[in-house]
């Protein structure tokens, strides 16, 4: 492949998969889904900086 800039972390080697019963998931997708759930939980759990209340 011409002029391929080497990625710092090469993801192009054979994929890894996890199996639970009929579920097969690539590790990459699993990471993405886990991060989505983690970010959702953090978005709710972490305190949001206070805005100044303005009375109108």
């Amino acid at each position: 492949m011409p002029a391929l800039v080497a990625a710092l972390i090469n993801l192009s080697h054979p994929g890894r998969y996890v199996h639970w019963g009929f579920i097969q998931l690539s590790v990459a997708n699993l990471v993405v889904i886990a991060l989505m759930i983690l970010v959702f939980v953090l978005a709710i759990a972490l305190p949001f900086p206070h805005g100044k209340r303005a009375r109108r």
Partner: peptide, 10 residues
């Protein structure tokens, strides 16, 4: 899934 270890269309 995507080729290699890339995330695909989750």
């Amino acid at each position: 899934n995507e080729t290699g270890n890339f995330p695909g269309q989750a």
